[in-house]
Amino acid sequence: MEQEKTTILYRLQVGEVVTTIPTIGLHVETVTYKNLKFHVRDLGGQASIRPYWRCYYLNTDAVIYVVDSCDRDRTGISKSELVAMLEEEELRKAILVVFANKQAMEPAMEQAMEQAVTPSEMANSLGLPALKDCKWQIFKTSATKGTGLDEAMQRLVETLKSRQ
């Protein structure tokens, strides 16, 4: 999972898959998408790092939350971390975009792993429909293939521009 976020970041930045290692701490990059510049903070997901996430919430317009659609065991942790994050005052007005990742895997990998949870199942598992004050969207994505990333980013850009 750790590499998925960074793989997505580089896919958006340079348009190709870049070999990555898990993010330890913070990785900051600038991504320009459709003439809109994003300052992206790729935060490591290890349990020991999560308490420090809040240090980077100030001036955040959008949160892109990447969830492994094939890892049903971590859905509960993903939900509790997401709920805690969205309770922070600095993120009250941030748009939430969830990437339900690993949706288009190679057939051999798909057989070896559980079937991916659909985006609507993932939304329900994360409790997204119950979010009252948060504008959210969920997208079916694949970090390695790039599937769904353009659609998700296009919708995010449109939503951010409509707020201006």
Rank of each mutant, 00 (worst) to 15 (best):
K145R: 11
D150C: 08
M105H: 08
Y10R: 02
Q46L: 10
V14Q: 14
T144A: 07
E151I: 12
D68E: 11
A152V: 05
A47I: 09
D42A: 15
P119F: 01
V157W: 07
Q46K: 04
D68S: 08
V67C: 07
V31G: 05
A108G: 08
A62M: 02
V67W: 01
R41Q: 09
R163H: 05
T147K: 13
T147M: 08
S80D: 12
T141G: 02
A84E: 02
L86P: 10
S69F: 01
T32E: 08
F99D: 03
L91H: 07
D68I: 02
S125H: 06
A116Q: 03
I138T: 05
M105W: 05
A130D: 03
M85L: 02
T75G: 08
L96Q: 15
Y57K: 05
L128C: 12
V83W: 14
V28D: 11
I138V: 05
F139N: 01
I95W: 06
A130H: 12
G127Q: 02
L9C: 01
V28P: 10
T141Q: 13
L26D: 15
L12F: 10
T7D: 03
A130L: 10
L86S: 06
A84D: 01
F139D: 11
K132S: 15
Y33Q: 06
A112F: 12
C70F: 03
P129C: 02
F38R: 13
V117N: 01
Y56R: 06
L96C: 11
V98A: 00
V17M: 07
K135S: 08
E81H: 07
L58V: 04
E158Y: 10
V17P: 11
L9Y: 06
L126H: 00
L126E: 01
E121D: 10
N59F: 04
A108F: 05
R54N: 03
N101L: 03
L149A: 11
T30I: 15
K145N: 01
N35V: 15
R155Q: 15
K37R: 14
V67T: 01
S162R: 11
C134A: 08
I8P: 03
K145P: 13
R11I: 11
R74D: 12
F139M: 14
R92F: 10
V18C: 06
R54S: 07
T75L: 08
E158L: 15
S120N: 10
K34T: 08
V63R: 13
E158Q: 07
G45V: 05
T6E: 08
D150H: 05
G127E: 01
L9I: 01
F38D: 07
M122Y: 03
G146N: 04
Q154M: 14
V117C: 03
I64G: 02
V17D: 07
G25D: 03
K161V: 15
R74Y: 05
H39T: 13
L96T: 07
T30D: 07
L126K: 00
A108K: 15
T144P: 05
T7C: 03
H27Q: 06
S80R: 10
V157D: 11
L82F: 14
D150R: 12
L12K: 11
P119W: 00
S69L: 04
A84Y: 00
G76F: 09
Q111D: 14
A84Q: 04
M109T: 10
A94S: 15
V66M: 04
V66E: 06
P22S: 04
V83D: 14
K135V: 12
I138M: 00
G127A: 03
